[in-house]
Nucleic acid binder design. Structure first.
Length: 596
DNA sequence: TCTATATCACCC
DNA sequence: AAACGGGTGATATAGA
């Protein structure tokens, strides 16, 4: 197509692709399952050539029936859904992808607008005519019912599928000028598109689960709770079945002359911290505290596990304002309480590796702010202790064990700083006086001056209307008329750049053939045959460190690796072991021992 | 009795 | 005046 005609079709923009294929799938998906493609409509942007295929036609193809090579671009809205269908069909993923959902999120991140982030919402945002949401819902219901569909219904479903593709054309045209504003801008968009492929790959692979143990726990769930409650509540009488009653607890407190802290609303403060504190002064409530704590951690109702024993769930990429994934906490194994991860268990002949970036946000802060002293603290391997030394609170030869108390206070300061914590907040958290917290924060400011100058400049800039951007082009701008939270703004570059690093890592791991199972914000779970584990871990570690170097001016975060070999299970021995064993005891399964 | 809101717990 | 960033979700209580 001649350049001038192309420019007209794209509102003055140019896209450097010979073919642009816009596509949408309809599919059926059950909890924890891979999607089952029902139909696909694809249309080429320049020629208008359209392909409509039904389920059985799709199954017969070994690859997408259109150009997915380097001179073509695939366009979709929330492409991980389309790629989930590609993978279910065994099709290779396209080389280039523009995901208009991801781009819509970038372009509107931080600003409030009324239409939401759905395809229809984005279309309305650009003034494009759409079908009604009701009509869409009716069709979704018809599809999700799973068929069989009459001939007329098939036609209706294909028409509906085509109507979404029809929206992609004007949407692409509306967004194209911004997407192509600079070559770099388009490059970042294509990277986000590649990440949607990695997302689909992780959703496809899933996390292997010990289904036997899960079934036993689920079957005994209510019994476990009842047993725990009945035993303990005998002395209190504050439970009504499985429900803790605040008024009954108030009566108990009155009868026992215990003064209890209240919230501003006048209600009793019932959080775990308050309970712990009060249990120290009034030991008779400590059993109740332990019970409430245990019940709070007992949550694994709706883990999404497919018939093949893999935990699969929508990762919801680019959902948070820092660009992080935001999967459902109840469906995803990494969203549940830590002890539940004991259910993660590699299949026979395989192993898993949990690779995480050590103190990633601290490292990012040091690199982006060019604070050399802060970077040296990171490189020391123990930033908390090094801050103590830098600030003159510990001698140069201090160690983690020789100066545990001061290191612990400094840890709270260092972590709190990244969230914009006040002296009051740090004091609460670290259990020290506000005056001491204030002093420690001041020392942090004095010793990491470059970091503070950078961080405060960011906050000032955003409040003055500027846009923040990560190395890979994720953006944030404070919406007009909305009030910015300075702590949020302060933290944004660190968390968002962490999300960049994760995305870059996932894409390169996928493309290097590493089997990625799940992203966990600053960590990635991978799977490998037992005999290839060590090699795959080193390959992955190298890729993750390189992702840091590429985004952090040549500097790498350390990557810690923990491996789990069949028949062992995953276990967080620090945070999850106690509860895991409590549950195992109450359902009559063996407790955790040496990996099993 | 049903729904909305507040509170709390969990994750990184 | 509040006092920790980004989130999801369950549950108890208040309110219609």
């Amino acid at each position: 197509m001649p350049i001038e005609k192309q420019a007209t079709a794209l509102n003055g923009a140019r896209l450097p692709f010979a073919e642009i294929w816009m596509a949408d799938f309809e599919f059926v998906v059950g909890s924890g399952e891979k999607p089952r493609p029902v139909c696909m409509v694809a249309e080429e942007f320049w020629s208008g050539r359209q392909i409509r295929l039904w389920e059985d036609d799709l199954q017969r193809l070994k690859a997408a029936p259109f150009n997915t090579g380097p001179n073509a671009c695939f366009v979709a809205y929330f492409a991980s859904a389309e790629f989930g269908c590609f993978l279910a069909l065994g099709w290779p993923l396209p080389t280039n992808t523009l995901d208009l959902f991801a781009e819509h999120r970038v372009l509107t991140n931080g600003t409030q607008f009324p239409h939401g982030n759905s395809l229809l919402g984005a279309a309305r945002h650009y003034g494009i005519d759409t079908i009604g949401a009701d009509e869409k819902e009716t069709m979704r219901d018809l599809i999700m019912a799973g068929g069989p569909w009459s001939e007329a219904e098939r036609v209706a479903i294909l028409d509906y599928c085509a109507s979404d593709v029809d929206l992609l054309r004007p949407l692409l045209a509306s967004m194209a000028p911004q997407l192509t504003a600079t070559p770099q801008r388009l490059g970042h968009a294509i990277w986000r598109g590649r990440y949607m492929g990695a997302v689909a790959t992780m959703e496809h692979n899933g996390v292997p689960i010990d289904v036997g143990a899960l079934d036993v726990i689920n079957a005994n769930w209510l019994d476990i709770q009842d047993t725990l409650i009945v035993e303990v509540d005998r002395a209190y009488g504050v439970y009504d079945g499985r429900t803790f009653k605040a008024d009954r607890f108030a009566a108990y407190l009155a009868a026992n002359d215990i003064p209890w802290p209240r919230l501003d609303t006048g209600r009793l403060a019932l959080d775990d911290d308050t309970f712990r504190g009060m249990a120290r002064a009034y030991p008779q409530v400590s059993a109740l505290q332990e019970l409430r704590h245990a019940l709070g951690a007992l949550r694994l109702n709706s883990l999404a596990v497919g018939p093949d024993g893999r935990n699969r769930t929508l990762l919801s990429p680019f959902r948070s304002k820092t660009g992080r994934n935001q999967p459902s906490n109840s469906k995803a194994i990494f969203g549940t309480a830590v002890w539940v991860r004991g259910l993660i268990k590699p299949e026979a002949g395989t192993a898993l590796a949990y690779l995480d970036f050590a103190s990633q946000e601290f490292a990012i802060a040091a690199c982006l702010s060019r604070d050399e002293k802060m970077w040296r603290a990171y490189e020391s391997g123990d930033p908390y202790l090094q801050f103590a030394k830098d600030a003159g609170l510990a001698p140069p030869d201090a160690t983690k064990s020789s100066h545990e108390a001061v290191r612990d206070r400094c840890k709270h300061i260092v972590l709190g700083v990244q969230y914009g914590m006040s002296a009051y907040g740090v004091a609460q958290r670290a259990g020290i006086l506000v005056a001491e917290a204030r002093e420690l924060l001041q020392l942090h400011r004095e010793h990491y001056r470059a970091f503070w100058a950078w961080a405060e400049q960011n906050v000032d800039n955003v409040l003055a209307g500027a846009t923040l951007s990560t190395p890979m082009g994720w953006q944030f701008r404070q919406g007009m008329g909305t009030e910015g939270n300075p702590r949020s703004i302060l933290n944004w570059p660190m968390q968002s750049t962490g999300a960049d690093i994760l995305r870059l890592s996932c894409v390169r791991l996928m493309e290097a053939g590493v089997k990625i199972c799940a992203p966990v914000h600053d960590a990635i779970l991978i799977e490998a045959p037992l005999d290839a584990l060590d090699e795959q871990v080193e390959l992955a570690r190298g890729i993750m460190e390189q992702a840091c170097r590429d985004l952090l001016r040549g500097r790498a975060c350390r990557v810690d690796a923990e491996t789990i070999k069949h028949p062992d299970r995953y276990m967080d021995t620090k945070r999850g072991l106690g509860m895991w064993n409590t549950v195992m005891r109450s359902v009559g399964l063996p407790e955790y021992e040496g990996g099993r």
